[in-house]
Design a protein around this nucleic acid. Sequence first.
DNA 1: TAGACATATACGCATAATCGCATATGCACA
DNA 2: TGTGCATATGCGATTATGCGTATATGTCTA
Lengths: 110, 110
Amino acid sequence: MNQSLEEEINHLHAEICQALSDPKRISILYELVEGRKNVGQLAANLGIDQPTTSRHLKVLRERLMVITEREGSSIYYSLADRRVIEALDLLRAVLAANLIQRKNLADILS
Amino acid sequence: MNQSLEEEINHLHAEICQALSDPKRISILYELVEGRKNVGQLAANLGIDQPTTSRHLKVLRERLMVITEREGSSIYYSLADRRVIEALDLLRAVLAANLIQRKNLADILS
DNA sequence: TAGACATATACGCATAATCGCATATGCACA
DNA sequence: TGTGCATATGCGATTATGCGTATATGTCTA
C-alpha cells in the first residue's frame, strides 16, 4: 500500500480510537446500549453536567459513532454501529486479563 | 455496580483505548502482528526515529499490550494479547463504513 | 412574540501528550 | 576497562484535551 495513504488511514483509525479514550465517553456509549437517550437523560444518569455531556457527544457525533434524532426540543442520541461496543468489550476483556495478571504477581509477592 | 468502582473501571478502560489513539502506536501494533521485532527494526520499518519509537513502546508496555525479551543488547517486542488487534480491526471496519457513508453523501451531492 | 426548556458553543484556564535533541543506561566484546 | 551498538530518558517547546462558567441557539406553547 502507498506509504502516505497508509499514514492517512492510521490517522483516521487513531481518531476513532481517540474518541474512546475518555471515561465519560465510554460510559455514554455503554449507556446508549440500552437504547436511545437525550442529552438531559445521559447527563443525569451519568452525573455529568450538561455542557460537558454535550461536548463529549459532539466528539462522538463527529466520528459518526452516534446518530441523532430531534424530537421536539430534545435531541435523542443512539449508537451508530454496534461494532464499537464489540471493540470496547474486547478491550475490556484485555483489561481484565491484565488485572488478573497483576493480581497474580501481587499474590506471589505476598 | 458500585458507582466509584464503575468510574475506576471506565478510567482503566479509557487508558487502554488511549494507548491506541496514536497513528504511530497503531502502526507499531500492526507491525508486530508479523512477529516480534526489536526497536531498531520497528523504527526503520515505520520511518519513526529511535527515541520516539522507544517512547511509544513504553506507553504500550505500561498498558501491558506488548511484552519484551532482551536478547544481547537488543530488546524484542511482541504482542501481549491478540484481542487488541481484533479490536483494532473492528474499529477499522467501523471507519471503513463511515468513509463509505460519506462517499455516498458526496455522490448524492454531485 | 414572550417565556420556558433543551441543547450547543465561546472563552479562559489547567493539565497532559508528543516530539526533537541531547544524553544516559545497559550490554557485549576486545 | 574502554569502545561501540541498542535502547531509554530528561528537557524544553508546542500542541491538544477537558472542564467550568456564561451565553447563544433552537423549539415549543401560550
